[in-house]
Computed example of a mutant assay.
Amino acid sequence: MGQSVEISWTGDVDLVNINDIRGEIDHALNTPDVEQLVIDLSGVGFVDSLGLGMLVYAVDSGGTRGVAVSIRHVPDRTMNLIRVAGLDDILPIDAG
């Protein structure tokens, strides 16, 4: 049976740390027997367009590898940005 991997981001998700974040996503998706990746945004204060792009990247890369991706604890400010960008139908936001 496959496993679930969770990554939690804190602080800002922007140009300064986007390469580190992409590395975290790739590492998590390459974990042996991973079936689900959960991205926890509870500690995030700010997300720019690159950060939104990384969320889309995670979902697309997960789909290519057969890994379900979900995003949880999305701060209101970030959720508003997701809606404005029209990504609320694309990103699997876990409301729970």
Rank of each mutant, 00 (worst) to 15 (best):
G2M: 07
V5Y: 06
T10S: 15
G11K: 05
D14W: 05
L15P: 00
N17V: 12
I18T: 09
D20G: 12
D20S: 12
I21W: 03
I21Q: 03
D26Q: 13
L29A: 08
N30Y: 02
D33E: 14
D33S: 12
E35W: 01
E35I: 00
L37F: 08
L37P: 02
V38Q: 10
V38P: 02
I39H: 08
L41V: 10
L41R: 05
G43V: 09
V47N: 05
V47R: 07
V47F: 13
V47L: 15
L52R: 03
L52P: 06
L55H: 04
Y57N: 05
V59Y: 04
S61F: 01
G62Q: 10
R65H: 12
A68W: 00
V69S: 04
V69E: 05
I71D: 00
P75W: 10
P75E: 12
T78R: 02
M79D: 13
M79N: 11
N80P: 00
N80Q: 14
N80K: 15
N80Y: 02
L81I: 12
L81Y: 03
I82M: 06
V84M: 14
V84F: 10
V84Y: 06
A85D: 11
L87D: 11
D89K: 14
I90E: 09
I90C: 04
L91A: 06
D94R: 10
A95E: 15
A95I: 07
G96S: 15
